Amino acid sequence: MTSSLRERRRQHLRDEILAAAQALIAERGYAAMSMEELAAQVGISKPTLYSHFSAKEELVIAMATQAMERLFAVVDDGDPPRRSALERLADLLRTGVQVQMDRQVTAMHLWMPEIVQMMKSRDESLTQLCRIDAVVVDLVRQAHLHGEIAAGLDESVVVRIFYALFMSPNVARLSLVNSPDPETMPDAVAHFFLRGVAAGKA
């Protein structure tokens, strides 16, 4: 077996493990899920599981990393920007909300303060978090310089509005109202962001 084939199989198994972990966490909760149960769900031995992930914390970080990769796809489209800075912020926000809606219950774990703190303790994850934040701050500054943001709105306020809306799927799950429609919520959140911060909007 060639090394490239072994690597593809290893990556495929890693993806299977993450998918099974996501399903178990959604069903039972992070604290209740055990590595033994996860190994049985995937049909592998515990040593094989631990060769991919040494602890549950690493599983959560890997899930969050996958989520952030979708955000990077929006940031790194490879082409010169064809949309304004404010529109690109809305695109990033829309994708961030969609990622969380796709992940349903597990998304609430991925962006909780303790999970973010866990990610900050790992160099690779910290680099990704800082990279996303740098993009958000830079786009807000560009939008401000080009007069896209309403006069009187401080850049730091706009950044915090962005992150508050980014977290909105999690806040919604704390309410007794029905769950939001995953098909319409990302666009709705992006719309509210644009209406709230764009220059000339009432």
Rank of each mutant, 00 (worst) to 15 (best):
Q117W: 10
Q117H: 11
M118N: 02
M119A: 03
K120F: 14
K120V: 12
K120Q: 13
K120S: 13
S121R: 14
S121M: 13
R122N: 04
D123V: 13
D123R: 11
D123N: 03
S125I: 04
L126P: 08
Q128R: 14
Q128V: 05
L129W: 09
C130M: 15
C130Q: 15
R131W: 15
I132V: 13
I132W: 07
I132Y: 03
D133G: 02
A134K: 06
A134I: 02
V135G: 03
V136P: 05
V136T: 03
V136I: 13
V137N: 02
D138W: 13
D138L: 06
D138N: 09
D138P: 05
D138H: 14
L139T: 00
L139Q: 02
V140C: 07
R141F: 07
R141I: 03
Q142N: 06
Q142H: 03
Q142M: 05
A143L: 00
H144C: 02
L145F: 01
L145C: 02
L145R: 15
H146N: 10
H146A: 04
H146K: 10
E148Y: 03
I149A: 07
I149T: 09
I149F: 07
I149K: 01
A150E: 08
A151E: 13
G152K: 04
L153R: 09
L153C: 02
L153T: 00
L153A: 01
L153P: 00
E155R: 02
E155K: 06
E155W: 00
S156N: 07
S156K: 10
V157C: 12
V159Y: 02
V159P: 02
V159R: 01
I161A: 08
I161C: 07
F162Y: 06
Y163K: 08
Y163I: 14
Y163S: 04
A164Y: 05
A164L: 08
A164R: 14
S168Q: 04
P169F: 11
V171L: 11
V171N: 08
V171P: 12
V171S: 08
A172P: 02
A172N: 09
A172R: 06
A172Q: 05
R173P: 10
L174G: 09
S175P: 12
L176M: 14
L176W: 05
V177A: 11
V177L: 08
V177M: 14
N178S: 14
N178I: 11
S179L: 11
S179H: 13
P180F: 01
P180S: 00
P180N: 01
D181M: 15
E183D: 11
T184A: 10
T184K: 14
M185Y: 12
P186I: 07
D187V: 10
A188C: 09
V189D: 00
